[in-house]
Structure formats: C-alpha cells, structure tokens
Amino acid sequence: MGCFQSKARRQYPGYEDPVNLASQTAFSVSEVEALFELFKSISSSVVDDGLINKEEFHLALFKNRKRENLFANRIFDLFDVKQKGVIDFGDFVRSLNVFHPNASHEDKVDFSFKLYDLDGTGFIERKEVKQMLIALLCESEMRLSDETIEMILDKTFSEADVNQDGKIDKLEWQEFVSRNPSLMKIMTLPYLRDITTTFPSFVFNSEVEDIAT
C-alpha cells in the first residue's frame, strides 16, 4: 500500500490518499480508488503525464478531442481548481463530488452560479446568458429568432434579477433556484451514488478495505 502510494504520488502530481479524499467527500474509499482507475485512463489518453488536460477532458466527454463546447470548457475550468490548465486527481474527485446525490445543496448552487458566471465577475450578466443561449442553439437543432432570444432574456431577468440592476448576483441566484428547483437537477448525477457497480467498465482494484464514511 505504501509502495503503491509513493509510486502513484510520483507519477500523478496532485495524487492524494484515498482515505483522506473519502473523508472530504461523499465517496467511499473504494469508490475513490475506482475514480483513480478512471482518472489514470483519462489522464493518459493524449499526454501520459498523470493530469487531465482540456483535450483529454473533451475526448472523455465527447469521444472527440477537437469538439468545442462552452459548457464543457466551463466545467473544465471549474474542475481546474488551481488554474494550471490541468485537473489533478484530488481536484477531480472533489469536483465530481459536487454532483454526488449526497453533496450539499449549497455546494451545488454555488457551483451552478460559477458555471453560469462565465467571466468570473461574481455576477451572471445578460451578455453571458445570451452567450450560453446562442451556444446551446448552435449545439441543438433549435432555431430561435433574435427577437425571441431577447424575449427569453427579458423574461429571465424579470424573474431572477430582483433588484433590476441588469445582472444576477449570488443571493438573487440562490432565491431564483429555490423558486425553480428543477434548475438544480443537472447538478446531481444519481449514478455517483454507486459508481463501482454502475460503471463496471473501468477496472477496479481496491487495495483498501472500505471504512464507513
């Protein structure tokens, strides 16, 4: 175990002890170990450096390393907690944990706010919402006129921007999602509750007996 960990630490910058990560997250020790197997696979798919770069993240999500997607880029940026252009193992597990059914609602609301605050200004601005709408229209088959897009933006800001200053702050966002709980559905991935049985496709090699977390 000690040998395994020191080797992992050498090969995977940002590797953290599964017991420690399990204590910080809703994942069990064996689930963190399973996530490490997944992490090893993704992080070696383009450059075998023990870290996930943006290209590898896109490849894992879309099976296409060149595909551009605004939301995938934004999720990558949020997973890249240290802002080094790569995701290390510890941040991978802690970031995925936000999507765990047992993660706190506050963490989910906070993450979703950051996800939509594209420029990181501390506000969700109208131009950012428009950018996201246009991005999703480009991705999907949906076609909406400029006038319709502006109508949707007007409706959104009349509901969410309570103080009518043209941007949504975190408190307004918290109140908005409490009135629209369906918006938080995308922040929970039910299968994270039991990843070792739901996703048997990735190799699982537990060397630690599970402890209650």
């Binding site: 993704i42 709408l133 409706k155 629209n180």
Partner: peptide
C-alpha cells in the same frame, strides 16, 4: 412547451448537451 414560455436557465439545463456520465464510459 414553447421556448418563449421558459426562462433561459430552464432552456440551458434542458438542452445542455453535456453529460458528465460519459466520463465513466471511458
């Protein structure tokens, strides 16, 4: 439901072509 009857975030969360579950299909 017509898109114009929804707010932007409803549309975004409905249409977001991003499924993190694909990560586990690696």
């Amino acid at each position: 439901e017509q898109p114009t009857s929804m707010n932007a975030f409803e549309l975004i969360s409905m249409s977001q072509g991003l499924n993190l579950g694909n990560l586990f299909d690696h």
